[in-house]
Computed example of a mutant assay.
Amino acid sequence: MKPKIIYVYDALCGWCYGFSPVIKSVYERYQDRFDFDVLSGGMMLGSRTGPIEVVAPFIKTAYHTVEEVTGVVFGEGFLREVEKGDMILDSEKPAIGLCVFKSYHPDKAILFAHDIQNCINFDGKGPNDEEIYRLIAVNFGIDPDEFVRKMHEEEFKQAAYYEFALAKQLQVSGYPAAFVQAADNQFYMIAKGFTRLEDLEARIENVWKEITT
């Protein structure tokens, strides 16, 4: 069994959007040596959900910092939505979407996380907008109607909440985070918060040496 790199993110996390190109590069480079999985953290659930203006007005200025540190660009579509302030931030639907996606392509979860964050942070689509999930489904050769139908099934909602619980078990208190899982109870944290590609690769190589020698 290959060791696994587990990426814990939230679709609404700006720093995860900044980290997305990094973890995608790692996926492209290391998929021969590692399996990959993505867990949703559930950053905005229950009483923490609501319009940007109410639950996350800080985004209006915070995105500049993310751009400066990570080099990503937030799109005009997203910035327009931030200015309007009425986009509903809710982590549940993207998490359910990820679980549905993994029922088709469990090995490509990193690509789903990357694409959904682009839809939100570049194109300015709300996380509850089913158009996002249809678009991603089509891009991966999945029937969009079937994909959206599955998102309304209880099984996938429960799977999403199970992932939120797993992220807590891994003691993730902020996003992004990444681990190497070498065995059932053997985890190595390789990213806590935004991490540059060269640093992440160095940590992966160090863990690889440790678990294979």
Rank of each mutant, 00 (worst) to 15 (best):
G50W: 11
R80M: 06
D37A: 15
F101S: 08
E53M: 13
P51Y: 09
Y175D: 06
T49M: 13
M43T: 01
Y161M: 14
I120N: 11
F164V: 10
F58A: 12
E131W: 01
L135G: 08
P106L: 07
Y30M: 09
M189D: 00
T65P: 01
N121Y: 15
A167I: 07
E131K: 08
I5F: 04
A109V: 09
V66W: 02
K157S: 14
Y104N: 05
V138W: 01
Q169V: 04
I6L: 10
H105P: 12
P144K: 09
I23S: 06
V82Q: 06
W15L: 13
V26W: 06
A191F: 10
I116F: 00
G174F: 10
I116R: 02
V180Y: 03
I116S: 00
K102R: 15
R196G: 06
F179S: 12
E28G: 14
K93G: 07
V148E: 01
T195H: 08
Y63G: 01
L135F: 01
G124K: 05
K2I: 01
I59T: 00
E53P: 01
L79S: 05
P57T: 07
D10E: 08
E146L: 12
P176A: 04
N206I: 06
S103C: 09
H64V: 15
P127A: 08
Q117I: 07
R33Y: 09
K125L: 15
N139Y: 06
A165R: 14
H152P: 10
V22F: 08
R203Y: 02
G193W: 01
A11V: 01
M1V: 11
G71Y: 12
G85I: 12
D35G: 03
V180W: 00
D86K: 15
D115I: 03
M44Q: 07
F78C: 09
M151I: 08
G141S: 04
T65W: 03
R196C: 02
Q186E: 15
R29T: 12
Q31Y: 04
Y27H: 09
K102W: 00
G124N: 05
V82Y: 03
I120G: 09
C99E: 15
A183S: 15
H152V: 05
A202W: 00
F112Q: 09
V180M: 05
F101Y: 04
N118C: 07
E146A: 10
E198S: 14
P3R: 10
K102T: 08
M43H: 01
D107A: 14
L170V: 03
G126I: 02
H114R: 13
R149K: 14
C13M: 02
H64Q: 13
Y17S: 10
P106W: 06
V148T: 08
D107Q: 14
V73P: 06
M43C: 02
L197P: 03
K93H: 05
E154Q: 12
G41A: 02
I190K: 04
I5A: 00
G18T: 02
R203M: 08
T70G: 03
G77Q: 07
I136H: 08
V73Q: 14
M44S: 05
D129G: 05
Y17D: 11
G14Y: 06
E201L: 12
Y133N: 09
L111H: 04
L98V: 11
N118F: 10
C99H: 05
N185T: 07
L45A: 07
T65S: 07
F147V: 14
L170W: 05
L98W: 00
V54G: 00
R29S: 12
A159S: 15
V72C: 06
S25P: 06
L12P: 04
E68I: 08
Q31S: 11
